[in-house]
């Protein structure tokens, strides 16, 4: 009797194995999905950081989009122009030279420069603080709660002394910080050189009102545009034409920087050796960690 059971058991298992192999083999052939071999090659060429900077969910998603023709070959900001060239070679297209895009924070006010700040006890995020009136006097500028810092996968933007500051050595230009900022004061611009000129203010109010809320905000005096033609003015705020920006204008730009009464136009980007030398002796800026103690935290419970 036991031999009947054993042989039946063995027979069942073998039968199941054979049946499943047939079914899975058939399914493998019938449900075969055509995968373009170029997708694998493109995935290999991409850096594989899955940062989402190209606008797709991950590197494999972008690779599939490129091979199916839905996306251009030079979207990867992490890989840069070398990666774009490699992908273009796989796809058999030409790629024009493009510049890396890097973020600029259009605000120059640290904690002490901002006036009319009040105690905020809500969610410690910029998105939430932006909805509440009166967190700080300036309704355009950086709030300093670190939404951009949390969105960065590359540790390239930090809130230092209340102001979002980009570390251009680490930044790869994925654009996550620009998307995260609820006040839209971070913009991505093409970095044609290691250091670019930037207007570090977003306040569109007239000069008197700006002076009330900020010690370093732009007052719209238009001195910069008098010295350099790259500045255009819109609603009391200068904007630099980055399309035509080039070093031919350097002496004009330097004059505009010197003449700005609020010292709000600065060169930003990777520090040059001269800059590093100049700050060697200085102490590092202090990083403020928010301490969200409420008024009841230290009281004794008298209930």
């Amino acid at each position: 009797m036991i031999w009947v059971t054993v042989s039946l058991a063995a027979g069942t298992l073998v039968g199941m194995a054979v049946a499943m192999s047939y079914v899975l083999g058939w399914a493998n052939r019938t449900f075969y999905v055509e995968v373009d071999t170029r997708v694998e090659a493109v995935i290999d060429a991409l850096p594989g950081a899955n940062c989402g900077g190209c606008g797709f969910v991950g590197c494999s998603d972008y690779a599939e989009a490129v091979v199916s023709g839905r996306a251009p070959v030079d979207r990867c900001s992490v890989g840069g122009s070398s990666c774009a060239a490699a992908v273009a070679e796989i796809m058999g297209v030409e790629v024009a030279r493009s510049w890396p895009y890097r973020p600029i924070v259009h605000c120059g006010a640290h904690y002490d420069d901002r006036l009319y700040r009040s105690e905020y006890r809500g969610e410690p995020t910029c998105t939430a603080a932006n909805l509440v009136a009166g967190v700080q006097g300036c309704t355009y500028g950086c709030l300093g709660f670190g939404d951009c810092e949390r969105s960065c996968d590359f540790d390239a933007i930090h809130v230092i002394d209340g102001l979002a500051t980009v570390d251009y050595d680490k930044c790869v230009g994925c654009g996550a910080c620009a998307k995260a900022c609820p006040r839209n004061i971070i913009t991505m611009i093409p970095f044609k050189y290691e250091q670019m000129l930037a207007v570090t203010c977003s306040n569109k109010d007239i000069g008197d009102e700006v002076k009330i809320v900020c010690k370093v905000g732009c007052i719209g005096c238009r001195v910069c545009s008098r010295f350099c033609s790259l500045f255009t003015f819109e609603e009391n705020l200068p904007a630099i034409d980055y399309g035509n920006y080039c070093t031919d204008f350097m002496d004009q730009l330097e004059k505009a920087v010197k003449k700005c009464p609020r010292k709000g136009i600065v060169f930003i980007g990777k520090p040059s050796p001269k800059d590093l030398e100049a700050v060697e002796a200085h102490p590092l800026p202090r990083v403020i960690e928010s301490d969200f103690k409420t008024t009841v935290d230290d009281t004794e419970w008298r209930g």
């Binding site: 899975l24 399914a27 493998n28 019938t30 449900f31 075969y32 999905v33």
Partner: peptide, 8 residues
């Protein structure tokens, strides 16, 4: 099997 079917 389900994975292959859904993928197709």
């Amino acid at each position: 099997f389900v994975e292959m079917y859904v993928r197709k």
